[in-house]
């Protein structure tokens, strides 16, 4: 009898590890692009930290995976159905249980906030209801991006540009160039927001050329290493809140 129980337990264990392997495979194929191959984060948040504003229990993970996170870049993966979904949920859950709260981010976030002011980041970015809507909203950038990604965004802003912040350059018939963030473009027209936050609207047959901006509209920041750490620590601390995305949405700002 005892032997039988042991055998059953062994069977259950091996089934579980098989499921975890299936979950890992699903993760690599579907999630690694944003969350990194080991879940350490990138364009998407680090999943190895135990904390998450969306919760790390199975029900929360299931909801986030299938429905996505409104207002963020996390899409819903509605194609996932049982039993593959459970495999994936259990794998993602196993990522955070391996960690004791994630790696600490070095740096002085209070000094980072000072650097944010002194470098005039708010000329283009917005935190809560403060700043500009020209560049990406940073209200919860710490919840949505890994520290490594934030660091790269400061030093090499062109490494990853969200499609909605793609710059576009319109060359008018007289040679004048107008650049800005592309609001919309189709076969016959382009709409952009220029650096003064004004909408500029063009019909393609009335201009010389429409091109994607080859680089990010944000300049690279070559800060001393300590300042870079501090600024990253500050950005990583931005976890959103009532004055964040909700405010923007209420104001009708994309």
């Amino acid at each position: 009898m005892r032997l039988l129980l042991l055998l059953m337990a062994a069977g259950a264990l091996s089934a579980q590890s098989r499921d975890l392997a299936a979950g890992r495979a699903a993760f690599v194929s579907n999630c690694a692009f944003c969350h990194g191959t080991t879940g350490e984060g990138g364009r998407g948040p680090n999943l190895t930290t135990a904390q998450s504003v969306h919760g790390r229990d199975e029900a929360s993970l299931r909801r986030v995976i299938t429905r996505g996170v409104p207002g963020s870049q996390m899409p819903g993966f509605g194609n996932f159905e049982e039993p593959s979904l459970t495999d994936l949920v259990l794998y993602v859950k196993s990522l955070s249980s391996r960690s004791a709260g994630g790696q600490a981010i070095p740096g002085d976030r209070a000094h980072g906030a000072v650097l944010y002011q002194s470098n005039k980041c708010a000329m283009c970015h917005r935190i809560g209801s403060e700043g500009s809507v020209f560049g990406p909203d940073l209200s919860r950038v710490g919840a949505g991006r890994s520290a490594a990604y934030l660091r790269e965004s400061l030093t090499k802003p062109a490494a990853d540009i969200m499609p909605e912040y793609q710059g576009v350059i319109v060359t008018l018939r007289d040679g004048t160039r107008v650049s800005g963030i592309r609001i919309n473009e189709d076969t016959f027209s382009v709409q952009l927001r220029d650096l003064t936050q004004k909408f500029r609207l063009f019909q393609k047959d009335e201009v010389q050329m429409v091109q994607d901006a080859p680089r990010s509209l944000m300049p690279p920041y070559n800060l001393p290493p300590k300042d870079l750490d501090d600024l990253v620590a500050y950005l990583a601390s931005l976890q959103g809140g009532p004055a964040g995305n909700q405010t923007r949405q209420a104001e009708g700002i994309r």
């Binding site: 299936a22 579907n30 194609n79 996932f80 159905e81 039993p83």
Partner: peptide, 20 residues
């Protein structure tokens, strides 16, 4: 194109992962 082995359940999505 990504590929991982799917499990078959009648009437449910049976893709073997997806593309991006």
């Amino acid at each position: 194109y990504f590929s991982t082995p799917p499990k078959f359940v009648e009437g449910k999505a049976y893709w073997g992962t997806a593309t991006r």
